[in-house]
């Protein structure tokens, strides 16, 4: 296009990643956790709450498809106090709620941030979806996509925006590889091939309920946001 129009006039200068907390600081890091049904999103959120809950001020938004099951799971397991979890309804469209119309999720995030001033980490768990699911960067600062070995070792090769573009890809349930005939080396190689420099972690939440590696990645992201100059 010829550079003879001032295109900046059409673009709202607001940048979601540059938003400020009321105290003028950079505010909480918002992390989206998405992935297909049953891949272990809620288990990962619970693990992160257990591992990071002591050192970070954190809250969780869940996007259950139908019930408040995920929110209830987190409450039941006493991972977080009730007032640190909000569930949103997604109108039969879990995908719309995290990407196309993020209003309900923004409301929930802002409610939790207002209720807990100084919060450092907001985890937004999507409803179980498919390989095309991804979060809008108007809602989250970084996103984690969770797939599992039992879904077949072809998943990374199939790609989709979650697998190729998520800031972190987590391949869960590595302990099941021998039982489902999945080749972890193939999954690693295919992931690296489509993801370029972006990291992939192969984990088993059953063997490591603390999700040590994922927690370390999230910790580094929180630190990086906190260091953003004012």
């Amino acid at each position: 296009m010829p550079p003879d129009h001032d295109l900046d006039d059409y673009v709202d200068p607001y940048d979601p990643g540059q938003r400020r907390a009321p105290d003028g600081g950079p505010g909480a890091l918002r992390v989206g956790i998405g992935g297909p049904v049953g891949s272990g999103k809620t288990a990962l959120v619970a693990a992160l709450c257990r591992t990071l809950g002591e050192e970070l001020d954190l809250v969780v938004v869940t996007n259950d498809i139908y019930t408040t099951e995920d929110a209830d799971f987190l409450r039941r397991n006493a991972v977080l106090p009730d007032d640190r979890i909000e569930a949103v309804q997604t109108g039969c469209c879990p995908h719309t709620a995290i990407r196309d119309d993020i209003t309900a999720n923004l409301d929930a995030v802002e409610l939790l941030e207002a209720r807990h001033p100084g919060v450092q980490l907001v985890l937004v768990e999507s409803g179980g979806d498919n390989l095309t699911a991804s979060f809008s960067y108007g809602l989250v600062d970084v996103q984690v996509f969770v797939v599992d070995v039992a879904g077949g070792d072809k998943v990374p090769r199939k790609g989709g925006p979650g697998v190729t573009s998520a800031d972190l890809l987590v391949v869960n349930k590595t302990d099941l590889a021998p039982f489902v005939g999945a080749d972890l080396d193939v999954m690693r190689r295919d992931s690296d091939a489509v993801r370029g420099e972006k990291p992939t972690l192969l984990i088993s939440l059953r063997e490591d309920p603390a999700a040590t590696d994922v927690a370390a990645w999230v910790r580094a992201q929180v630190r990086s946001r906190a260091l953003q100059s004012a």
């Binding site: 949103v88 469209c93 196309d100 119309d101 993020i102």
Partner: peptide
Amino acid sequence: SRLPAGGHAHS
């Protein structure tokens, strides 16, 4: 209905 104002979650 594409206007992202949250209407999609209300029936």
